[in-house]
Simulated scan of single mutants.
Amino acid sequence: MKVKLSIKPLVIALSLFGATAALADINIGVSVSATGPAAVLGGPQKNTAQLFPTSIAGEKINWIVLDDASDPTATAKNVAKFLSETKVDMLMTGTTTPGVMAAAGPAADSKTPLIALAPNRLDGEKFKWTFTMPQPIGLMAEPLLEHAKSKVYKTVAFLGYHPDAYGEVWIKAMEALSPKYGVTFGPIEGFARTDTSVAGQVIKLVSLKPDAVLVVASGSPAAMAHAALSERGYKGQIYQTHGAPSPVFLKNGGKAVENGILVAGPVLEWEQLPDSHPSKKVSGEYAKAYEAKYGQNSLSSFGGHMWDGWAIASRAIPVALKKAKPGTAEFRAALRDAIESEREIAGVHGVFNFSPTDHSGFDGRARVLLQVQNGAFKVISK
């Protein structure tokens, strides 16, 4: 069903939604990195949450939004508050992969559906209760490798978060997929999310002359690493993951990121999509709502993961309400089952079709290739 959105400011205070919440209220706990190193990702997610409606199917929704300051330990503490004090029916949590990992255990233990806002690798009960909004790493790696094959690149090096959960999932995906495309993956040079220089790593890579370099980072660090390669005279192709595309990347990278190729979800350059693309309409609705509140050119793909979380919840909640009341274990279980069984949920990043073995739900409609041309992102492959 479609839900009319009302743009109202949220009251972001846990105390307002404690024991006074009515039994019929639907409580949703949101923990995002609104501050700290991952704020370029979590800020748009917090902003997006303020666009959500406060009722659905005749039931009130209480949105409890907390900042984890880019600290997975704080994410875990926020989730513990949601589960013990507010008895949330659903979690939308984890701006970063470490944040998702911190939330997945408590979500599974309490049998609470978790809408994860960052890529992850989960199994068992953690997988059963977690539904991931960003596209699977393997799905996003394929078009980069296809491009490398088309250009007859034989080596693709790694420069990115390592050791780090996000970097690790990309390394595993590239190691598994690159032989299929005739590409040798490596060498691997890592840096931390908080590093302000990658000069040493870049000197090593430039001296080895790989045909291409894959930068695996997000926001400002992605731009910093890309610029360092350009400034050291690297002439090969520089690729970026879907953690990078944002206004901050373009602003901070400037001319140094020209001609870089990035894989991304459809939302960032939705106007360049064909009218037949299932994400074009919903992306336009999100973009217009977001920029009406936060300003022109403020749209970020990271907030789109939060928007997609609501698209999924808005389909699942009416189904679950037919089986149980909010605030109960039965309702949480019904929510989880509804998310898993609903089909063709159009989001800004693609179309979701979850199953018991697939809690990503995406297909090829969830990715495009972008190239930085004249300081802007241009779709070069749909």
Rank of each mutant, 00 (worst) to 15 (best):
D337P: 03
G347L: 09
G303W: 01
R336A: 05
N353V: 10
A316K: 03
R367I: 02
V319A: 04
R343C: 01
R332S: 06
L335R: 04
Q373S: 14
G350L: 12
A320G: 00
F354P: 04
A324C: 03
L369K: 05
A346M: 06
E344Y: 11
I345P: 01
D337S: 06
I312F: 05
S355W: 05
Q373Y: 08
A366Q: 13
I317S: 06
A333H: 00
S301M: 14
G327M: 02
R367P: 01
L335D: 02
L370V: 06
V348Y: 06
K323M: 04
I312V: 15
A320M: 07
P356T: 08
P318M: 11
A316F: 01
L370M: 08
S314D: 08
Q371S: 11
Q373F: 06
V368S: 07
E344K: 09
L369W: 05
H349W: 11
M306I: 07
I345K: 02
L321D: 01
P356G: 06
F331A: 04
S301N: 10
E330Q: 12
N374P: 01
R367Y: 11
V351M: 14
G327A: 04
G375R: 10
K325L: 13
L369E: 10
A366E: 07
K322L: 06
H349S: 14
F331R: 00
S341R: 09
G350E: 13
G375W: 03
G309T: 10
R336M: 03
G364W: 10
L369G: 03
R332K: 14
L370Y: 12
P356L: 09
G327E: 09
G304V: 09
A320L: 03
A313M: 12
K322D: 09
V351I: 14
G309I: 05
L321N: 07
A329W: 00
A338Q: 03
R315S: 13
G361S: 11
R343Y: 03
S360K: 07
G361N: 13
S301G: 14
D363W: 06
R332A: 04
A338I: 00
Q371P: 01
F362M: 13
